[in-house]
Design a protein around this nucleic acid. Structure first.
Length: 409
RNA sequence: GCGAUCGUAGCUCAGUUGGUUAGAGCGCCGGUUUGUGGUACCGGAGGUCGGGGGUUCGAGACCCCUCGAUCGCCCCA
């Protein structure tokens, strides 16, 4: 018999099991419940799209597109890509399916995303997000509702010590003027910046603002602020968002340095980040953003559609699952213990009745009688139903067993 | 893409300055003793020490490469 080598899992993928899987499911279930409260409609999206959907929407120069996508040619020679995010695909669907007729359209979804990155705590190559978008809504009210939903979700997940960091990038003109000012400002001290930021100066100068490098931090404080470049409209928009949040009881903090890495963002940008020193911060390590998003009014045009305002956010399920605490698997209410194999038929009948009645039940029917009891007890059942060759002959266990008794009679 | 640490049975880990048949606990399988559901004990299976090269009389221990994990940088959810 030749030795077959077991193939190993692909780097950066996870096999989630037990209490971790329960925490994962808890996040998804809570999201689904809150989603319905806010009347976000469920959508299911393809896991892959034509590569251009992402390259055009997200931006060719972004790290996500330039070095993190899983792209391949299908048998027809077409370049396809495993989705690295939800937003671009949802925007494409909005355009190709004529969802304009439903605008403003609130949708939510969840599922796996793929990014070729170095795996790390809270960062995987196949990871999972929950996602909420409001398409075709240009009013600040949409931003407010979306953020209120995110805030409620985090509360219902029982996650504490997390703050909404909020910023505005202004409209397209504001953003460009600010960007130009930042380039001018940082170019003057170029030689003193970190190597990373010297490169960012070319590719994405906004990102210098949230650099962690002390060499950069020195200059960030005095860097030009977006507020100085906001048009009156952009300022009014942001004010409407913040006053709406206040009215909705959503706590937030202004974060002037907060920017987004993807090209399509305008106006509102936000991240929910654990407070320094909190348990959540410790649990997440350096991958600290648990929910992030913003307004992407320019995205539809980049996909060839009519100008369509939209806002959205996404949150990493793995990161949220790390914060929701231990989620135990459902308690075993009734264990049917088969003391003799001739009792199997009776046992199966009992099991059927129990489960039909909604009782969490399992069966133990292998090994010696002693082993059966030992193994059954280790699963910590609330009650044990004994079955032998003569049939069912009793129930034991602490506490109320009326549901169980009623189910089997 | 860069850096640091790490990789021994299913799991958690020991394995002294390189030296005879690689160990423990838990788990698993079998049994004994108890016990009319949580005990104690005995035995067993299971590892080409992540993989590949090299140094050496001899390497799980040293060197190189590679794969993977973990944690940072970067990026992002």
């Amino acid at each position: 018999m030749s030795k077959i080598k077991t193939p190993q899992a692909i780097r950066g993928t996870q096999d989630i099991f037990g209490t971790d899987a329960e925490a994962f499911a808890f996040v998804v279930e809570t999201f689904e419940r809150v989603r319905k409260l806010y009347r976000f409609r469920r959508v299911e999206m393809p896991v892959f799209e034509k590569t251009e959907v992402f390259s055009r929407a997200i931006g060719e120069t972004t790290d996500v597109v330039s070095k993190e996508m899983y792209s391949f040619e299908d048998r027809g020679g077409e370049s396809l890509t495993l989705r690295p995010e939800f937003t671009a695909g949802i925007a494409r669907a909005f355009l190709t399916n004529g969802w304009q007729q439903h605008a403003p359209l609130k949708v939510g979804t969840h599922g796996p995303l793929f990014r070729y990155e170095r795996p790390q705590k809270g960062r995987y190559r196949q990871f999972h997000q929950i996602d909420a978008e409001i398409l075709g809504a240009g009013e600040p009210q949409a931003d407010v509702e979306l953020l209120a939903m995110a805030d409620q979700l985090l509360r219902e997940l029982g996650i504490e010590g997390v703050t909404l960091h909020l910023n505005t990038l202004g409209d397209g003109d504001s953003r460009e003027a600010w960007r130009a000012a930042l380039i001018e400002y940082f170019s003057a001290v170029r030689g003193e910046l970190s190597e990373d930021s010297q490169e960012r100066l070319e590719k994405n100068p906004l990102r210098i603002l949230d650099s962690k490098d002390p060499r950069d931090r020195k200059f960030v404080g005095d860097a030009p602020k977006i507020d100085a470049f906001l048009s009156d409209d952009a300022r009014a928009f942001f004010d409407a968002v913040t006053s709406g949040l206040d009215a909705a009881g959503v706590k937030w903090a202004r974060a002037e340095g907060l920017v987004r890495g993807l090209d399509y963002y305008r106006h509102t940008a936000f991240e929910f980040i654990p407070d320094e020193g909190s348990a959540a911060a410790a649990a997440l390590g350096s991958q600290s953003t648990i929910l992030g998003g913003g307004r992407y009014d320019g995205l539809m045009e980049s996909l060839g559609g009519a100008p369509t305002p939209a806002v959205g956010w996404a949150a990493g399920i793995e990161r949220l699952a790390m914060l929701v605490g231990e989620k135990s698997e459902p308690a075993l209410e009734a264990m049917v213990l088969v003391e003799h194999d001739d009792g199997l038929a009776v046992a199966n009948e009992l099991l059927s009745k129990l489960r039909t009645a909604g009782v969490v039940a399992d069966i133990m029917a292998t090994g010696s009688v002693k082993k059966r009891y030992d193994k059954a007890v280790k699963q910590n059942p609330q009650h044990i139903l004994r079955v032998n060759e003569h049939g069912y002959h009793g129930i034991s266990g602490e506490g109320d067993n009326r549901r169980i008794v009623a189910a089997i009679n």
